[in-house]
Computed example of a mutant assay.
Amino acid sequence: MPARREIRIDFIRGLALLAIFVGHAGFDFSDAFQQARGFSDASEIFVLLAGVSAALAYWRPSGFDPEAASAKTLRRALRLYLVHLAMVAALLLSVALPPIASRPAIVAELGLDTFGAAPVRNAVEIVLLSFMPGDLDILPLYVFLIVATPFFLALHERSRRLLLALSGGLALAFGALKLDFVNDAMPAGGWYFDPLSWQFVFVIGLCIGVGLKRGRDPLAYRPWLFRLAATFVLTAIPANLLLHFVFTEISSSHLVHALVSKTFVGPLRLANALALLYVLWNLSAVKRLTADGALAPVFAAGAASLPVFVFGLALSTLCQMLMASEVAIPLAAQACLAVGGCLAQLVLATHLGERKLKRRNASVPLAASLPQG
């Protein structure tokens, strides 16, 4: 009998997708929205849940098969890689259009102001994942993580503690040394999400997923831990807002930057993400939700995360272009765009869910529905 789908993953991931859209759209309130979620944001939750989902998809309690898992993960990674290249191509075509090409501020905002100086070299770098404009290094991060998944799972088979120790040590070393992969499209010159730091977030999710697959819940409710996590999450919100908007000199110090670094997953950021996931996982209101209730579109978005994420990223890029243009967008209109973008993603997710259900029903052999004589 197949294991019951853990729908909390879909719900939390669906919420994260909507939050990623609003936070990346470049609205006047996008920065405040990002900082109002504490030291972490939706990205950490999304990567944690990606690790959980990878374990549920590729690990088997009956025995882990590295070769079978490698074949599956390579197919998945190739699909993500091709989607990424298609998104970069679409972005390049869009900025070549006269209305956008004539707006240097928009082109610079997307990290494409230097592309024309060496288009052939940059095209090769795009293929090699060393030239990624805008916010387009998230899918390459997943390519890296999915390709590495069989190795992570094989090491988990030997020792979960060893996997966590090696993964955490690697992340700590790269964060301390500030070593990152090259991204010539962005001013910092590196990936916004350093893969060798973010792999630790993914590995933690992977260990949670293996636990779920074994029939136990590593995120099981414990009153003292829930109170501690909730206190941390609620305290982090005003603390981060004060650091970001009031005590800006303190927030720019080396120590605070290291603690909350997004590129290298600072320890405060990781702790906040884990606490937030634990709270959401154990909220009574979330536990009572059903995938066919009023919030069904949010569940559908989490279940169809790749197409919804790509669509949301396209929408947020369009919003960035609009906000970087010379047209003044009233705050009320920006709020309408934010709500409209979220609704558009939910409509797409609902459509994809219905289409998947129809395909599943159509694939049932006709003979199974006929009386047997």
Rank of each mutant, 00 (worst) to 15 (best):
residue 243 L to A: 07
residue 253 S to L: 04
residue 259 L to D: 01
residue 261 S to C: 10
residue 271 A to E: 05
residue 247 F to H: 12
residue 273 A to L: 08
residue 253 S to P: 04
residue 263 T to W: 02
residue 248 T to D: 09
residue 259 L to G: 02
residue 273 A to P: 05
residue 243 L to K: 07
residue 264 F to D: 00
residue 243 L to H: 06
residue 264 F to A: 05
residue 268 L to G: 08
residue 269 R to W: 03
residue 253 S to K: 06
residue 271 A to P: 03
residue 255 L to F: 12
residue 257 H to M: 04
residue 266 G to P: 08
residue 255 L to I: 13
residue 268 L to I: 09
residue 254 H to Q: 13
residue 251 S to D: 15
residue 252 S to W: 07
residue 253 S to V: 04
residue 250 I to G: 11
residue 257 H to R: 11
residue 272 N to V: 03
residue 268 L to D: 08
residue 251 S to N: 15
residue 244 H to C: 05
residue 256 V to Q: 01
residue 260 V to S: 06
residue 267 P to Q: 12
residue 264 F to Q: 04
residue 255 L to S: 04
residue 260 V to R: 04
residue 255 L to K: 02
residue 244 H to S: 14
residue 248 T to W: 04
residue 264 F to H: 14
residue 266 G to R: 02
residue 273 A to D: 03
residue 258 A to W: 12
residue 254 H to G: 09
residue 249 E to Q: 10
residue 260 V to N: 03
residue 273 A to T: 06
residue 253 S to W: 06
residue 243 L to G: 10
residue 263 T to A: 14
residue 251 S to Y: 14
residue 263 T to C: 09
residue 260 V to W: 02
residue 268 L to P: 08
residue 266 G to N: 08
residue 272 N to P: 02
residue 243 L to M: 12
residue 246 V to L: 14
residue 270 L to N: 01
residue 257 H to K: 10
residue 244 H to V: 09
residue 265 V to Y: 00
residue 247 F to V: 05
residue 269 R to F: 03
residue 254 H to K: 13
residue 263 T to S: 15
residue 272 N to L: 01
residue 250 I to K: 13
residue 261 S to G: 12
residue 254 H to N: 10
residue 270 L to A: 05
residue 272 N to K: 01
residue 272 N to I: 01
residue 259 L to K: 00
residue 265 V to Q: 00
residue 268 L to W: 15
residue 274 L to C: 13
residue 250 I to A: 15
residue 264 F to P: 01
residue 252 S to D: 15
residue 248 T to E: 13
residue 274 L to T: 03
residue 269 R to C: 06
residue 266 G to Q: 07
residue 255 L to W: 12
residue 255 L to A: 12
residue 274 L to Y: 03
residue 270 L to Q: 03
residue 254 H to P: 02
residue 262 K to V: 12
residue 249 E to M: 01
residue 267 P to H: 11
residue 258 A to S: 14
residue 250 I to S: 13
residue 250 I to L: 15
residue 251 S to P: 01
residue 248 T to L: 08
residue 249 E to Y: 00
residue 273 A to S: 15
residue 257 H to W: 01
